[in-house]
Design a protein around this nucleic acid. Structure first.
Lengths: 147, 147
DNA sequence: CATTCTAGTGTCAAATAGTGTCAAGTGGTG
DNA sequence: CACCACTTGACACTATTTGACACTAGAATG
């Protein structure tokens, strides 16, 4: 059972986000971890179990020098921060990441199997609507998938 | 734990930039240093622990004479300035470097493992957006890396 | 040569951000 | 409907960052 499900959670006045208990259980059991590595992703955030993050970093650092490697380092690796849970299961998200994602009061946390996405409610509404219309336009593709 | 994380800091009216406490701790512990060597880098600035800077200088000076060696000396080595922290953890950035990077009020400081980059907010927003669209366009590549 | 400007320094104190913890809400489950 | 686990808001406390101001050194001006 990987991370899954969509949760509306709130952010407290100091920038801490509650991570759903089911995700914390999963992390403890499958990854033996009490925290997450959070970084930028599009105009939201993404969080990985620390062990997964190490693998990703190793992959990026082994790329040959060039603009793609640099873009990954600049926009994914460098802004990343390991955040651990407090007694209430909240993580403190650094200010720069909160600003990047426009987090403020209402936040959506989504289990994406190997990773967890974190969006502001607004950004999530937008991206979900966009995805929905993409699916709409491809009735055949959807049918082929069995939907 | 090398330098990492992205911080929005401000520059005071005399051109001093606050360096995040986590970077200062790292410098003190791993490099036994109370300052940074700052120089030009693209249209921003980059800062190194003094011991790393010595190595870089040695590498440049051992190049065989030619336009590349000269360009390195002219644009990287010559403009560099060692800046030490004041009691509040700020460094004074020379005027010529501030002008080069267009620093004015809002500044972004980014930990890049062995070095620290310093950008004006505007320049950083631009470069990050550029990097982001490069990553966006290569979904396959990103998936291969494990993101 | 005296005076005025400007850039830079040192320091203080206010403002802001982050941490730890408690207890009140909330919603799901039996 | 009562219980329980989870989530949320709140508060006190600490650490960090920021704005302000007085002071110094050196350059520019008359």
């Amino acid at each position: 059972m990987k991370f899954s499900g969509e949760y509306n959670v709130s952010i407290d006045l100091k920038g801490r986000v509650s991570i759903p208990a089911s995700f914390r259980d999963e992390l403890r059991q499958k990854y033996d971890s009490e925290g997450l590595v959070v970084t930028r992703y599009k105009n939201g955030l993404v969080a990985y179990p620390p062990s997964r993050w190490e693998e990703i970093c190793a992959n990026v650092f082994s790329m040959s020098p060039g603009p793609k490697r640099e873009a990954n380092i600049r926009n994914r690796i460098a802004p990343a921060k390991e955040c651990s849970f407090n007694a209430q299961g909240r993580i403190q998200i650094p200010q720069s990441l909160r600003e990047h994602a426009g987090l403020d009061k209402d936040v959506v946390v989504i289990g994406m199997f190997e990773k967890i996405e974190i969006w502001s409610q607004i950004a999530h509404t937008l991206i979900a609507a966009e995805s929905e219309s993409m699916l709409d336009e491809d009735a055949q593709g959807q049918a082929d998938l069995g939907f």
